[in-house]
């Protein structure tokens, strides 16, 4: 009994310790952000490995999610003879929820885990420590460019995801199931509000981008410098990002759409 209480206490202390370290680390990153202006090439390089390399999986997943959405919503809507609102149903669910959330989850799996593994491995092979001894700040040289690249990529990828998915829904709904093309788009435009829906979706993806980037670089930087430690850090990145994104999505949805 006492033993389990003690281990609970140790666990809680460990959680608080990591929480504190994570926030101090974030503070450190934010104070070094000026590197982005002085050395934009570093960020562009990371935008390539974080953003461009994730593009394919995001676009393909978007297409399929949109097509499935088109199918499923059509099946439900046609029962009420309301298949002409298919466009707005597809667009609303994508722009508000699925776009930012699914993109963030895919991003954590594709780019976040790679970032953690890369940084963790650099730590394991003493590259970060070596930089420090060469009078190069690894936070500025390694962490900040990756953090910023991830933070920029996610909203862009989320927008691409939503756009491709709406096309997917259009192919299925209009091309395959025979919904009228005009009412597909006009219903969409009538029901999707730019500020209420599109903007809130973008804000969501910005928040997710920040959190996903932070978790990925922190887990890598904080990894135990062994091969097992790096693999655990990679797993933790995916799990923690997924949990954080879903929980934040709930909170943000409540704040944004709660009054309707």
């Amino acid at each position: 009994m006492l033993g389990s209480l003690a281990s609970l206490g140790r666990w809680a202390l460990g959680v608080f310790e990591r929480l504190g370290r994570g926030h101090l680390f974030l503070l450190n990153i934010l104070m070094s952000l000026h590197v982005v202006v002085t050395r934009p090439r570093l960020v562009i390089r990371e935008l390539y490995s974080v953003g461009v390399l994730s593009l394919l999986i995001i676009a393909v997943s978007g297409l399929f999610v949109g097509m499935v959405l088109g199918y499923q919503l059509y099946i439900t809507l046609v029962r009420f003879g309301a298949e002409e609102v298919l466009g707005s149903a597809v667009a609303l669910s994508l722009v508000r929820e699925l776009g930012p959330v699914v993109t963030a989850l895919l991003f954590a799996g594709r780019a976040g885990s790679a970032l953690s593994a890369e940084i963790g491995l650099m730590k394991t092979t003493e590259q970060l420590s070596g930089m420090e001894m060469m009078a190069v700040d690894p936070i500025k040289r390694v962490i900040v460019p990756r953090f910023v690249a991830a933070f920029i990529s996610l909203p862009l990828l989320a927008a691409i995801f939503s756009a491709v998915a709406i096309m997917g829904g259009y192919f299925i709904g209009v091309g395959l199931l025979g919904v009228d093309s005009g009412s597909f788009w006009s219903q969409m435009q009538a029901n999707v509000d730019f500020y209420e829906d599109v903007m809130n979706g973008i804000i969501k993806s910005l928040v997710f981008g920040f959190v996903a980037a932070w978790i990925a670089v922190f887990e890598g930087y904080d990894a135990v410098p062994t091969s097992e430690g790096v693999s655990r850090a990679t797993t933790r990145t995916v799990v923690h990002t997924a949990l954080a994104v879903l929980a934040l999505d709930f909170i943000l949805t409540g704040l944004m759409f709660g009054d309707i």
Binding site: V95, L156, A159, A163, Q189, F194, V198, I202
Partner: peptide, 14 residues
Amino acid sequence: GLAALFMLAMQVSN
């Protein structure tokens, strides 16, 4: 990304 945002703004929303 910007083209997608543009589409979401002009074609999808009001």
